[in-house]
Amino acid sequence: MVQSSYDVKTIVLRKNINESEAMRIVEEKKTSPFKSLLSRPKKEDVHVHSLKLYYECILMVSGKYVADYFRKATHSISVDSNVSEVLLGDGLFPVRSKSSITKAFVGKRGKNKIDFKLDEHVFVEEEDELTFDHHGRDIKFPFKINSKTVENYPKQLLDKNESNVKKPEMTYDAAIDKLKTQLKKPMETDVKNLNEEFTLREISEIYIPIFEARLIGPKKKVGIIRIDSVRKKIL
């Protein structure tokens, strides 16, 4: 996977449980992957083959989209019932024809309407951020990022655990394209003189420490338990 060159911020969240605490959770829940509607194995029938700490990347991109363009529009004004047309600049605008139903409801004294076909100059400004798990699926970011929740030396920590780091499978370009699509709302069909600009604010790789236990159950079936060590939560 080839990534385009971007200035990427690297963040590693701190664990809130250690390996022994993770193992206690696994021992407590190790039969869960093997249970069925009618049965659940005994704890002694399930063996914890391994417990490893992985650092899984959540990719976050943020940016801003601005645009201006002209679009066709019709604006109407009301005039007195005895007005037949309006002179505006070099244009002469007649009143709108009334249907028989309208005449029946409002009578001869009802206000007349005049339609002006104009070009509107429209300005759009949108900002947002998107987050993706390491497989590239859209997710809502559930963590807090501040000085208390992040590691002080993230790159050194990831280098030290390089074999257990799960980098994003989605490219930066693909993530940015999704953000652009999110920010650029569908426009009217009759648009002209479009000027638009997308500004990338930030790309962040946020690594979540995940304990992953490999379990061997009855008939040598394999099960997995994954624990989010930041939120102390089984995934």
Rank of each mutant, 00 (worst) to 15 (best):
M1T: 05
Y6F: 14
D7M: 12
D7N: 15
V8A: 09
V8I: 13
V8K: 11
K9Y: 01
T10E: 03
N16K: 07
I17G: 03
N18A: 08
N18T: 03
R24E: 13
I25Q: 01
I25G: 02
V26H: 02
V26P: 02
K30Q: 06
T31Q: 11
T31K: 05
F34S: 12
K35L: 12
K35E: 14
L37G: 03
R40H: 04
P41L: 07
K43T: 12
H47L: 14
V48M: 05
L53P: 05
L59C: 10
G63A: 02
Y65P: 13
V66F: 02
K72V: 09
V79T: 08
N82Y: 12
N82D: 12
E85F: 09
L88C: 05
G89L: 06
F93N: 00
R96H: 07
R96I: 08
S99L: 08
T102I: 05
K103Q: 05
V106T: 08
R109V: 15
R109N: 07
K111G: 09
I114T: 09
I114H: 08
D115M: 11
F116G: 03
D119W: 15
D119P: 02
F123D: 12
V124E: 12
E126K: 12
D128H: 10
F132M: 08
G136C: 12
I145D: 00
I145W: 07
S147W: 10
S147E: 15
V150G: 02
E151L: 06
E151R: 00
Q156W: 00
Q156D: 15
L157T: 04
L157S: 03
D159K: 06
N161L: 06
N161R: 08
E162R: 08
S163R: 14
K166R: 13
E169V: 00
E169K: 15
A175C: 01
A175L: 12
D177V: 04
K178S: 05
L179K: 04
T181D: 10
K184R: 15
E188T: 10
T189Q: 13
N193W: 04
N193L: 11
E196M: 03
E196Y: 06
F198L: 01
F198P: 04
F198H: 00
T199P: 01
E205N: 11
I206K: 02
I210W: 02
E212M: 03
E212I: 04
R214C: 02
L215H: 04
I216M: 08
G217E: 09
P218T: 07
G223R: 07
I224M: 11
I227Y: 00
D228P: 00
L235G: 00
